[in-house]
Design a protein around this nucleic acid. Structure first.
Lengths: 195, 195
DNA sequence: GTCTATAGGCAGATAGAC
DNA sequence: GTCTATCTGCCTATAGAC
């Protein structure tokens, strides 16, 4: 049973996942070793196996954490903004994190690109992160009165940002990414004005 | 000195690179082992080192091959089509290879996504593959009379196709990719009609 | 629960016979 | 030039002391 101190099992487990998420974002899943994660989170290598049976289990936990954080962000937007504002906030998030995107690419896009080379359980879980955003965006477009084409609009938006993030990372440049974000924001405004 | 038989050094070397290119596209660079390449190209493992000093040298050769093939395709388009037709042919190439894109993603995009996690000489070489397409597309847009914005138009096009390819691979689905290709073809036509 | 030590396996790379 | 055998090192995972 975990203790209740600030350095309890749960906290240590969370720190491991947090570190793993950062390293995997920066280096990729395959290129991140358990020794890297152990060292960066201040835990002895062997001890990782008390918290996670396998490396893939760390991958699962990392995807869960990523999904939960993004879900929380979407809920905050749901509670404070109208549908158009939510879509704009989604685009603006890429604009605001453009330095990180240029340095290490998109965390979700990178995972899907790497893991979907050949299918596996972890790859399928990574895809659900995209699916969550696509579903949420589809809902926003529907609430903007876009009806059946809402899913395609959502796809266009996610797809555009992913491509821009990939090129930003490739050329370590934020300018074209920023331009694409602004184009997509104008596109969102024009969709809203159609009604 | 290489022999001149159909199974000469040069041919064997070419077969190794060809095989490596396919496997790396399907599995990624890090996940492809020299043993995989040796086995799939019918060459004993140790013999790879007669043709290539290191794994990275195979990566270099693979990027060269990819770049040379694409350059040839662009030259063929240059010789047979007007600027608008070249841009349309570029988009149509993604449409035609959509099954492969859904199965393994874009070969160039996958390489850049994987290798640019942290910079290295091979990553820089992979980026030149994108740069070649961006430069060529910029020329086409300029010839279409687009002037200074040509570079941004080229970026938008490559970026859009990369995003669509990533999602096609993630969901193993070609429909939204096809839709995005058609949208980009219509976009190209509308650019051409602006003059 | 925590940590050290190490097993077991596979990767890239090399040596050297033919 | 070609191939077999093998070295070395790192990575995941485990055993077992404390």
């Amino acid at each position: 049973m975990p203790s209740v101190s600030p350095y309890s099992s749960a906290k240590k487990r969370a720190r491991i996942v947090e570190t793993a998420e950062r390293l995997v974002h920066e280096r990729g899943f395959g290129a991140t070793t358990l020794a890297d994660i152990a060292h960066a989170s201040g835990v002895p290598l062997g001890n990782l196996y008390y918290y996670f049976k396998t490396k893939d289990a760390i991958g699962d936990a990392l995807v869960d954490r990523l999904g939960a954080r993004h879900e929380e962000i979407r809920r905050a937007w749901d509670e404070s903004l109208p549908p158009v504002g939510r879509v704009l906030a989604f685009i603006e998030a890429s604009l605001e994190t453009r330095e990180s995107l240029a340095r290490s690419g998109c965390a979700i896009g990178g995972l899907c690109s790497e893991l979907h080379k050949e299918p596996g359980p972890l790859a399928a879980r990574a895809a659900t992160l995209f699916e969550a955003f696509l579903g949420w965006l589809t809902t926003q477009f529907k609430q903007m009165g876009k009806g059946a084409e809402s899913r395609e609009l959502a796809f266009h938006l996610v797809s555009s940002l992913q491509g821009a993030a990939l090129l930003a990372n490739t050329f370590h440049d934020t300018k074209q990414l920023a331009r694409e974000c602004k184009r997509l924001m104008a596109w969102t405004y024009s969709l809203a004005a159609e009604d």
